[in-house]
């Protein structure tokens, strides 16, 4: 099963995981990391590496981060560049995570596609006429 590491500013990552588990049930091989004000990005990189080690059972890991260009994104990008078997997707939302969780028995590449599709498809403009 593909491992999941969620990294985000504030308490978004832990809250997102807790919330997703309300719908998808308790999850194995998923870790959330909260990046708080004053934390060193080198420390964050270390925490990400450790988290990946913890959730990866050889099938690879997908790291999902909140904001393109933010510190979690940059720290995760460095980890992903230095180590094979890691995919990284930015812009995590509930629909994305809820698509990833049940898709994790598939190949890493397909989990990434599920993340991208789920994240995009979950954003719609409400129009009662359609």
């Amino acid at each position: 099963m593909v491992g999941v590491v969620i990294v985000a500013h504030g308490s978004f990552a832990s809250a997102l995981l807790t919330t997703a588990e309300q719908i998808a049930g308790k999850q194995e091989q998923v870790v959330s990391l909260d990046f708080t004000m004053g934390e060193n990005t080198a420390d964050l990189q270390l925490r990400i590496r450790e988290a990946v080690r913890g959730v990866d059972t050889g099938q690879g890991t997908i790291i999902i981060v909140d904001l393109l260009g933010g510190s979690p994104y940059q720290a995760a990008a460095i980890v992903a560049m230095q180590q094979p078997g890691i995919e990284m997707v930015a812009g995590v939302n509930m629909p994305m995570l809820l698509e990833i969780l049940p898709a994790r028995n598939d190949k890493l590449m397909n989990v990434t596609s599920a993340a991208l599709n789920g994240g995009h498809d979950g954003i719609r403009n409400f129009d009662i006429m359609k």
């Binding site: 004000m37 004053g38 934390e39 060193n40 990005t41 080198a42 420390d43």
Partner: peptide, 17 residues
């Protein structure tokens, strides 16, 4: 803006050490 905490650093505010 931000000077993160680390070894040998003294916190001045939450985001500045």
């Amino acid at each position: 803006g931000g000077m993160s905490f680390g070894q040998g650093k003294t916190p001045v505010t939450k985001a500045v050490s």
